[in-house]
């Protein structure tokens, strides 16, 4: 390349690159357009596992070899049996088929958690963004009430509520939803405040837009992405919360199966059972699902780069 040679030797002198007389110099683009999300292999792994469990959660009751309370070997009264044909994951403390209960439990654990997280998001986002755009006084009152709730240990609060009201699936969903709404509230409020001070929101206010427009058109679209990512993380906490409650006996009530209560029911297997599968299998199910959700969330965060992690 002749141009570079000239420059190399003649720094002190004048160098002019060759040019065409008619060429115009357009404004250079500011930055490359952002690319679509394509998962890395860890992302795909996470998506596969989550997809698998969601599939089981929805179709489990139809696919399960037996009903959740059916006995695979009605004539054989020994508990915690090792896997064998007819009960591929062995039997539990009441001689029921572990595989079938696991498949029924998937729907309950995932379904309750998902509904509870949705509820937490609905309450948290509405109040959080509402607080962010209210007057400092209203914001202060709502935030301090939220802080008070936040200071209570989640499991304790859950135990007290469930013990007082009695356990049923709607109670579990509402309890978990309200408890986790406090965390979502803080995030939504912080995001809302950050977006509130952006010039485009002020531009909307100067234009004379109402509060509803500002929330739904200016703030929400910009808060949605980080909130959706957090949704995944929050879902993990709620799964663990619901499972913990079930493990403590205050969650899903027997004879209904869910992963947390399965671990509790079959604890005996650890000390004197022939097989530990009845307690390890539901525990592994919880672990794989939560880790897989985490993988997906991490992968999406990594794709959005610093922006999203900064906001979170």
């Amino acid at each position: 390349m002749t141009t570079s040679n000239t420059a190399k030797n003649t720094q002190a002198e004048h160098f002019v690159a060759p040019y065409d007389a008619g060429v115009s110099f357009d404004e250079l683009p500011d930055s490359a357009p952002s690319s679509r999300y394509s998962p890395s292999w860890t992302g795909w792994l996470g998506i596969t596992i989550v997809g698998f469990w969601v599939f089981i959660a929805i179709f489990g009751p139809w696919l399960a070899p037996l009903g959740e309370n059916d006995l695979p070997f009605p004539d054989d009264y020994s508990e915690f049996q090792l896997p064998r044909p007819g009960a591929w994951l062995g039997t539990d403390e009441s001689d029921r088929d572990v595989l079938s209960r696991l498949m029924y439990g998937a729907g309950r654990t995932i379904g309750i958690s998902f509904m509870a997280t949705l509820l937490a998001y609905f309450i948290g986002v509405v109040l959080g963004i509402g607080a962010a755009i209210s007057t400092p006084r209203v914001d202060m009152i709502v935030s301090r009430i939220n802080d008070a709730f936040l200071s209570l240990p989640t499991i304790m609060l859950g135990l007290v509520v469930v013990a007082a009201v009695g356990s049923s699936i709607p109670v579990l969903i509402i309890t978990a939803g309200v408890i986790y709404a406090t965390v979502v509230f803080r995030l939504a409020r912080a995001l809302g405040q950050e977006i509130m001070v952006m010039d485009f929101v002020e531009a909307a206010r100067v234009r004379g837009e109402g509060r509803w427009w500002i929330i739904t058109r200016e703030i929400w679209p910009n808060a949605a992405m980080p909130l959706l990512t957090d949704f995944g993380l929050r879902l993990i906490y709620v799964i663990l919360f619901i499972s913990s409650l079930s493990f403590l006996g205050l969650g899903v009530q027997p004879p209904q199966a869910d992963w947390g209560s399965m671990v509790r029911e079959n604890l005996g297997a650890l000390s004197y059972g022939a097989s530990v599968i009845p307690v390890v299998a539901p525990a592994l199910a919880i672990a794989t699902l939560t880790v897989a959700i985490n993988l997906v969330v991490d992968d999406i965060s990594a794709h959005s780069g610093g922006k999203l992690s900064k906001r979170l």
Partner: peptide, 10 residues
């Protein structure tokens, strides 16, 4: 301009 030296000198 656009990653190339167009002119250089004192």
């Amino acid at each position: 301009y656009n990653g190339e030296i167009k002119e250089a000198g004192p």
